[in-house]
Design a protein around this nucleic acid. Structure first.
Lengths: 329, 329
DNA sequence: CTGAAAGCGCTTACAG
DNA sequence: CTGAAAGCGCTTACAG
């Protein structure tokens, strides 16, 4: 088993002190060019890399961000994480990803682990069962900034970066009206989720008066499929569209549409709110109001860096959506 | 900013030595029950938790596993990681997830980071561009076991846990013959991946002689779509099926099929190898040979624990698949 | 320009 | 049963 190089080994081989090696490697101005040169050469040869545990123990900083998500198999979070990683790399931070499995107990354990590791900051989408937010605030007080994203607590004074639900619903609703659709089946998710409420309210506000529409709720793909199967036949197919609030709903609705052998967009239009992965699986691709995980990640990272720089002013940032046309409406 | 409790603080408050506190907290038999009791009580009160950096610096072990995957938005990896986390939790290990973004350079950086952190072990699905495996073998020599899964190198003597590619291909091929299909378009992935080669070889072996078939390669969904678009029209639609080696291929093929307005399974059959997420998005659902990430994770973890226990005997474990019927063939 | 020394928080062989 | 001491690998104020 090959030993890792240490400052001590380099110092011994070169007959200098450990301090000098340490300084030379950090390009400290005190050290002569000559000394620096020979130290850096040997370090390269030995593939020296500082032991992060020792560094952390000394400096109390880890240059490591944690991202905590309920689930990984989610294109939205994936894009979010990509954005964080992209920016973190530039600033010399490492990103570690934790999965809470949507379990508040596991979430607490992860938090504890982050605290002990003194991560530089935490990006987190909380579980649907997360009740207490004191542990998060405590971290903030200990100097570990917490930036909530997507699934955020209701509590006011914390850093939150969210998808603009009202805006996304507005975009989708406007597109429906613009296309001259007059009959709409709008399928929403779980009635208790705040994101459902916001999307429903805004959508209704815009569409009502201009189109006949029916709003229904489905708790999962199967329910959405059943609803679509039973309700679509009742609509006059002319100038008719189905609006799906989320990917989950869209998947169910599309199954029903395929099952009934209907053609999109000839027989009916389809429009949804999505991050774009699921809509791209169909032909024609589904038109959607984009909620971009990537953009959200960029915003969150910016906020985080400002927290680290000392801005303790909690702030809510909301990301707006744009319409991505896919030919389904 | 609240300070974290340390052994020293507890020792001072209780007028005992640091050594005693350390031992009491580990339930060392030398320490009297009485002393243990008061120390544990204060530790609980102060929410003492050992500084992992200090522990690691001393003991050279982290009780932390790394899982490295090319992508997160992948149901297969998600199930794999769930299985690892489930088992790791039981044994007191933490799991950290790294994303290589299918970039060999980032993969190397992650490896370096794992080495410096002296993780207890690494589970890795390599990138498609990974050429050198010495860095992995070096880790193994340094006492950090590496268990490859799913995307594994060709090199013989390493720990590999794979989907039973030959078996999955066999199941799919047999189902095709069983259904009386005589014309097959088989779309495979990147020719350089060993998984492609194995699946292609086995599939060919079984189908040839019984059906007319054409095997082609696509490096991504778009290529698969183009291939399907250009080649499907050339086939006699009677008793014809498309075989897709992976989800990526399936997505492309299904887009082409929808685009051409063909009906599944009336016009043509479709069968694939998958973990089951993508096949369930269509109607009818796609029939597939199941490769379970969860089962693979359980196998990989078992192998890892045996490595840690000292079994240096490299071993390839293969997980077998089963056929999940969806009505597409 | 360079080095000796202290200390981050822990573990553990050694001594008593 | 308990403690003093060394040491993991690093950084940095202090001294020269």
């Amino acid at each position: 088993m090959k030993q890792n190089a240490t400052l001590k080994k380099i110092a011994e081989r070169l007959n200098v002190s450990i301090s000098t090696v340490s300084r030379a490697l950090k390009n400290h101005p005190d050290i002569s060019e000559e000394t620096k040169k020979k130290i850096n050469e040997l370090a390269a040869l030995l593939e020296y890399d500082p032991n992060p545990y020792a560094v952390n123990l000394r400096t109390h900083s880890s240059k490591e961000f944690a991202v905590v998500v309920p689930s990984l198999s989610n294109f939205f979070y994936h894009s979010f994480i990509s954005a964080i990683e992209e920016d973190a790399r530039i600033d010399g931070y490492t990103v570690i990803i934790y999965r809470s499995a949507n379990d508040p107990v596991i979430e607490q354990e992860i938090l504890k682990s982050c605290r002990h590791k003194r991560v530089s900051g935490i990006f987190i989408a909380i579980t649907s069962g997360t009740k207490e937010i004191e542990p998060f605030l405590k971290l903030d007080l200990q100097g570990i900034p917490v930036v909530f994203f997507d699934k955020v607590p209701k509590y006011e004074s914390c850093n939150k970066i969210c998808v603009g639900d009202a805006h996304a619903a507005t975009i989708a609703a406007n597109e429906i009206l613009k296309k001259g659709i007059t009959n709409v089946l709008a399928i929403f998710g779980d009635e208790n989720m705040s994101i459902t409420q916001v999307r429903l309210q805004k959508f209704t506000e815009i569409v009502s008066g201009y189109a006949e529409f029916k709003a229904v709720h489905a708790n999962n793909s199967e329910e959405a499929e059943q609803i679509a199967l039973s309700m679509i036949p009742g609509f006059e197919k002319k100038r008719f569209a189905v609006f799906c609030m989320s990917d989950e709903i869209l998947v169910g609705a599309m199954k029903a549409i395929q099952r009934m052998g209907l053609k999109v967009p000839a027989d009916l239009g389809v429009i949804s709110i999505s991050d774009g992965m699921i809509p791209s699986l169909f032909y024609p691709e589904i038109t959607y109001a984009e909620t971009s995980g990537f953009k959200l990640g960029k915003l969150a990272f910016g906020r985080m860096m400002r927290c680290i720089a000392g801005s303790s002013f909690a702030q809510t940032i909301i990301d707006e959506s744009i319409l991505i046309e896919g030919g389904s409406i």
